[in-house]
Nucleic acid binder design. Structure first.
Lengths: 196, 196
DNA sequence: TTCTTTATTGATTGACGCGTCAATAAAAAA
DNA sequence: TTTTTTATTGACGCGTCAATCAATAAAGAA
């Protein structure tokens, strides 16, 4: 009983199922059948809409990046001062959406995949550059640009590191203390550059 | 023409080949044949000495951890002050051995695998705890213990984050600037706690 | 020399997973 | 009503890969 206009619904369901499957499994080693089953369809349908498995994985990664960008834009809209913009950028990376177990596991898996797939590496670089430029722009209002670039790298590295620790869920840092750790670093850097 | 006493040689060659294969491939998705071929033997021999593939991977991870521990102990031996011990711990993580492309890629791949394998997660936790306790011990000579614990987490996260960026080799941080970034963080934290 | 242990591999098996295809069914167009 | 388009799946082929096994060969022990 095929109702028409299923395509967008199926695409979304399959992408969500992909994130969930990767998140639960902890790697990209998930079968098309597992993903499709989770979305309530057959594996053949997943191929019908996405072609090869790689295409589905790429689409899933783009979806994650789009979500992140959307949330970032929303939070930045209400932040006027450089200091507030900094906190907004930090906060978005540890929001319930982005710092959720499944999403974090998926990110980590995609990072690994990016070593093989140039397309995925390109996508990740776009994100990394955007994060870095956002951080630098905000920091530049509080310190010399050359130092801002430096500090931005430190912040980005710390965020990535906290993602790893989250994925390994041992001494899993909760979002609150993770934010506190990064904010502490930010505050220290600003203060040290301030009283010259 | 089997010479005797091959076992230790083969084991080492196979483990080295595993690191190399993982490093080049960027994931644990390497076949036993690829690994064995790189070590100059047949895949059957790899199974003969290690059993299942998982066993070889676990042995490889233990080898990486052992190397790291050995180098850490060596560097700590010559460091007397808390400040020197801190720098030694940081430096080890970015040494030519540990921060080499292959080794970094292998670490990242094992991190992902640890989400599935409890045994690997256990091994990684041992390392994480040892790193954390070493850092905390050194920091405790320079600030209150409660703060030392906090700062140790920040350092560890930053190191992990720099590993990821190294693996993605885009804005790949060279060892020197990576060390500078972490040392800067350490110095700032110490200074801020110092002049109370 | 004969036997046993160690080293080594080619061939094989069995499982598994991607991607394809033909077939079915219903909605919409002709 | 016939035809076309959209939705959907079960079955299958093909390739890959981990793991096993029987066979070969040399070194040392008996």
């Amino acid at each position: 009983m095929p109702k028409l206009g299923m395509e967008p619904l199926r695409r979304r369901a399959l992408i969500d199922a992909t994130v969930a499957a990767i998140g639960e499994h902890g790697s990209l080693d998930v079968t098309m059948s597992q993903i499709a089953g989770r979305a309530g369809v057959s594996s053949a349908l997943a191929h019908h809409y996405f072609g090869a498995k790689d295409d589905l994985l790429r689409a899933t990664m783009r979806s994650l990046l789009a979500d992140l960008g959307r949330e970032l834009r929303a939070r930045l809209a209400g932040a006027t001062t450089p200091r507030a913009r900094l906190s907004a950028i930090v906060a978005v990376n540890f929001s319930a959406q982005q710092f959720g177990e499944e999403v974090v596991a998926a990110w980590l898996a995609f990072y690994v995949e990016a070593q093989r797939s140039p397309e995925m590496r390109r996508l990740l670089n776009v994100y990394a550059r955007r994060l870095h430029s956002n951080l630098t722009a905000a920091l530049a209002g509080l310190m010399p640009r050359s130092e801002a670039i430096h500090v931005a790298e430190g912040i980005a590295a710390m965020i990535d590191g906290l993602y790893i620790r989250r994925a390994l869920k041992n001494g899993a840092p909760d979002p609150v203390s993770a934010i506190a750790l990064v904010e502490d670093y930010v505050a220290l850097q600003i203060a040290s550059k301030e009283h010259r």
